[in-house]
Simulated scan of single mutants.
Amino acid sequence: MSWRALFLCLMMAFSSPALALSPDEILSDPALESRARDLSAGLRCLVCQNQSIDDSDAELARDLRLLVRERLVAGDSNEEVEQYIVDRYGEYVLLNPRLGPHTLVLWIAAPLLLLVGLVALVLARRRTARPQAAGLTPEERAVLDQLRDDTERR
């Protein structure tokens, strides 16, 4: 392997993703900034959909980061800030959805469908399984032997 390829591999291994947070968004209070980062990491970017707002460069993600920081500066708790964002944008904004009656169906549906599938598979196999032929009775064996004798004479 050439030195350039090795250097490139090392650079890729030690590089970390750049956060989309700009310096003007950072709060002066380290405790509030830490709370804001924790909250931002759990909120979904509505534009990117598979990134947190902390990682997204989208304008809406920036607005959400600023909104989180504004609410924290106003004195809201983490739960209040999260609920405020959920009230405005819906539960889809949470990267880790809450467990509730509406999400309980999703958790129960998967194992239930698996169970129904297994039962259907067992029933289908039972229908296609052929019963084992029982042994012939002496009368049936005598009839069979006579039929063989008749066909051999012809």
Rank of each mutant, 00 (worst) to 15 (best):
Ser15Asp: 03
Pro17Asp: 02
Pro17Thr: 09
Pro17Gly: 03
Ala18Cys: 10
Ser22Asp: 07
Pro23Lys: 04
Pro23Ser: 10
Asp24Gly: 03
Glu25Val: 10
Ile26Tyr: 02
Leu27Pro: 00
Leu27Glu: 01
Ser28Asp: 13
Ser28Lys: 14
Asp29Pro: 01
Asp29Met: 00
Pro30Cys: 06
Pro30Phe: 00
Pro30Ala: 04
Pro30Asp: 04
Ala31Thr: 13
Ala31Trp: 01
Ala31Leu: 10
Ala31Ile: 15
Ala31Gly: 00
Ala31Glu: 14
Leu32His: 00
Leu32Asp: 01
Glu33Cys: 04
Glu33Ala: 02
Arg35Glu: 11
Arg35Lys: 14
Arg35Thr: 12
Ala36Tyr: 03
Arg37Ile: 01
Asp38Arg: 13
Asp38Glu: 13
Ser40Asn: 06
Ser40Leu: 06
Leu43Ile: 15
Leu46Val: 06
Leu46Arg: 14
Val47Ser: 08
Gln49Trp: 02
Asn50Phe: 03
Asn50Thr: 14
Asp54Trp: 08
Asp55Pro: 00
Asp55Cys: 05
Asp57Thr: 04
Asp57Leu: 06
Ala58Asp: 13
Ala58Lys: 07
Glu59His: 08
Glu59Cys: 01
Arg62Ala: 14
Arg62Asn: 04
Asp63Cys: 08
Asp63Pro: 00
Leu64Pro: 01
Arg65Pro: 05
Arg65Trp: 08
Leu66Ser: 09
Leu67Tyr: 06
Leu67Arg: 15
Arg69Leu: 04
Arg69Asn: 02
Arg69Tyr: 06
Arg71Ala: 14
Arg71Asn: 14
Leu72Asp: 05
Leu72Cys: 04
Val73Gly: 00
Val73Ile: 15
Val73Met: 04
Asp76Thr: 01
Asp76Val: 00
Ser77Glu: 11
Ser77Met: 07
Asn78Tyr: 01
Asn78Met: 09
Glu79Met: 05
Glu79Tyr: 01
Glu79Arg: 11
Glu80Lys: 09
Glu80Ala: 15
Glu80Gly: 09
Val81Tyr: 03
Val81Trp: 06
Val81Ile: 07
Val81Gly: 05
Glu82Ile: 15
Glu82Ala: 14
Glu82His: 00
Gln83Tyr: 01
Gln83Trp: 00
Gln83Ser: 14
Tyr84Thr: 13
Ile85Gly: 05
Ile85Tyr: 05
Val86Gly: 11
Val86Asp: 08
Val86Asn: 08
Asp87Gln: 15
Asp87Cys: 07
Tyr89Glu: 10
Glu91Met: 10
Glu91Ala: 08
Tyr92Val: 11
Tyr92Met: 04
Val93His: 03
Val93Cys: 12
Val93Met: 03
Leu94Tyr: 03
Leu95Ile: 13
Asn96Arg: 10
Asn96Leu: 07
Arg98Phe: 04
Arg98Asp: 09
Arg98Val: 15
Leu99Trp: 08
Gly100Cys: 14
Gly100Ala: 08
His102Ile: 10
His102Asp: 10
His102Met: 04
Thr103Leu: 05
Thr103Met: 06
Val105Ile: 12
Val105Leu: 12
Val105His: 06
Leu106Tyr: 10
Trp107Asp: 07
Trp107Tyr: 15
Trp107Met: 12
Ala109Met: 13
Ala109Asn: 09
Ala109Ile: 09
Pro111Asp: 08
Pro111Gly: 07
Leu112Thr: 15
Leu113His: 02
Leu113Tyr: 07
Leu113Ile: 14
Leu114Asn: 03
Leu115Cys: 13
Leu115Pro: 00
Leu115Val: 15
Val116Thr: 11
Gly117Ala: 15
Leu118Ile: 13
Leu118Val: 13
Ala120Trp: 14
Ala120Thr: 12
